[in-house]
């Protein structure tokens, strides 16, 4: 039976894992390579890392960090943040990423999804979608939720699938960072309208939240703070889910 994937997410600046997206109060949580190694050894099913400050100078160090991480882990690695064109995707795959996640660039230029999946195969193209409720509709947002696009969430999710995305990384900006649980309602709408795997992201604060995430039919559950802060070990989460009858790799 296919197991539900538990995926720690590292928000990275250069080679450091940082907390949150609030640029004013950046807190360093640790060294990215060390943390990646730790999660791989402690039972993570995949790892996700995002360049949250992809400036030209930081980018070089970030790519070196991807290379170092790819060398020390042997679980799948998804890398995203600041991916703007085919060149960026190729660079990250060459650095050792197994999958590359595209967000704003896909919204601005949907053809990029098709070009990337034709060149590298759908299996390594993840489209990250940030969703937010706006005037009673679920919309796609970019720039960390600061810009609401014209795209309606479900239409966009279906579109990225038809353009060749192999997976959707779905973050609800209404629940992200609040630790009150995943946005079950939004996630169910998305998983119900596409047939590619969906990773749930945004809002995990306790063990039950993981279980509720599983019930949305998301096949991957992504979390950051609860792992980085040491609140839960990956094994703790998996044991809990297993007791609830969720198939996990232990």
């Amino acid at each position: 039976m296919l197991k539900t994937r538990i995926i720690p997410c590292l928000d990275v600046i250069k080679n450091k894992v940082v907390k949150g997206v609030n640029f004013k109060n950046i807190r360093v949580m640790g060294n990215a390579v060390e943390m990646a190694k730790y999660y791989s050894l402690s039972g993570a099913d995949e790892l996700c890392m995002l360049d949250i400050n992809a400036s030209y100078q930081n980018r070089k160090t970030f790519i070196k960090t991807v290379e170092s991480i790819a060398k020390v882990i042997n679980i799948p690695l998804t890398v995203g943040g600041g991916v703007s064109d085919l060149r960026d995707i190729t660079d990250l795959l060459n650095a050792g990423a197994d999958k590359v996640s595209i967000n704003s660039a896909a919204v601005k230029n949907p053809k990029l999804i098709r070009q990337a999946s034709l060149r590298h195969g759908s299996q390594c193209i993840v489209v990250a979608i940030d969703g937010k409720r706006y005037k009673n509709k679920m919309k796609v947002v970019i720039k960390g939720g600061r810009e609401i696009t014209k795209n309606e969430l479900i239409t966009w999710a279906k579109q990225v699938q038809s353009l060749g995305a192999g997976e959707i990384l779905m973050t609800s900006m209404d629940t992200d960072g609040v630790q009150n649980g995943f946005d079950s309602n939004m996630l169910k709408k998305v998983t119900g309208s596409v047939s590619i795997p969906v990773i749930a992201s945004g809002g995990v604060g306790n063990l039950e939240h993981f279980y509720l995430g599983y019930l949305t039919k998301s096949t991957g559950l992504l979390a950051a703070s609860v792992f980085h802060s040491g609140k839960y070990k990956i094994k703790t989460v998996k044991k809990y889910l297993s007791r609830k009858g969720v198939p996990v790799r232990i």
């Binding site: 039976m1 296919l2 197991k3 539900t4 994937r5 099913d45 759908s122 299996q123 192999g166 997976e167 047939s195 590619i196 795997p197 096949t219 991957g220 790799r249």
Partner: peptide, 12 residues
């Protein structure tokens, strides 16, 4: 036809 495709993740 109802399966989530690709089959992606850990399986036995």
């Amino acid at each position: 036809k109802k399966l989530i495709i690709p089959h992606m993740g850990w399986n036995t």
